[in-house]
């Protein structure tokens, strides 16, 4: 408890959301997916922090920002182990984990260069065929995009 207080003291927030256990190299993807670059709220980002689980992790603290579950699950593609703390009055009132949804819209790019989504102004749409390995089947060209080829739009 003492340790976590020390960490939070950098930017303890009164109300908001803390997203922890983001792989360090996915921080900018998470910012993009959640559209944080377009918000005018107070935010703190920490990255390349030591983590036993992830090697190097990133953390995001957002004042007065709350997400609904659907929005949060969108980050599961790039940060499947992310842990969320919802803060009210400086206290963690809720903890959440993320889960990859069954369908994914307009987050990832289809791996197939001949796909309509890479040739015309068409939003990507995928069916998640494997959650553990992250395999996305394109609704349009029916090709599989796997974790290795995953590019966030």
């Amino acid at each position: 408890m003492i340790k976590s207080k020390k960490q939070l003291s950098v930017s303890a927030i009164e109300n908001g959301t803390v997203i922890d256990h983001i792989p360090a190299d996915s921080l900018f993807d998470v910012i993009q997916i959640l559209g944080l670059n377009k918000l005018d709220k107070m935010m703190t980002f920490g990255t390349n922090l030591e983590s036993k689980k992830l090697g190097r992790k990133a953390i995001i603290k957002l004042s007065n920002v709350f997400f609904d579950e659907i929005d949060l699950n969108r980050i599961a593609l790039v940060a499947p182990q992310a842990k969320l703390n919802i803060i009210r009055n400086y206290k963690v009132v809720e903890k959440r984990v993320v889960e990859i949804p069954d369908e994914i819209e307009s987050i990832a790019k289809c791996v197939n260069p001949k796909c309509i989504t890479n040739n015309e102004n068409v939003k990507t749409r995928f069916y998640v065929v494997s959650k553990e390995k992250v395999a996305l089947k394109c609704h349009y060209c029916e090709k599989i995009t796997d974790k290795e080829n995953l590019v966030i739009l």
Binding site: N112, I116, T117, N119, E120, C138, H139, Y140, C141, K143
Partner: peptide, 23 residues
């Protein structure tokens, strides 16, 4: 020649589409 074009066309067309080959 573009893959997925027929699926997309079926979403924007007001009449049914029959795919005669998409790539």
């Amino acid at each position: 020649p573009i893959e997925g074009s027929a699926r997309y066309a079926s979403e924007v067309a007001s009449v049914p589409i029959v795919n005669a080959g998409d790539g």
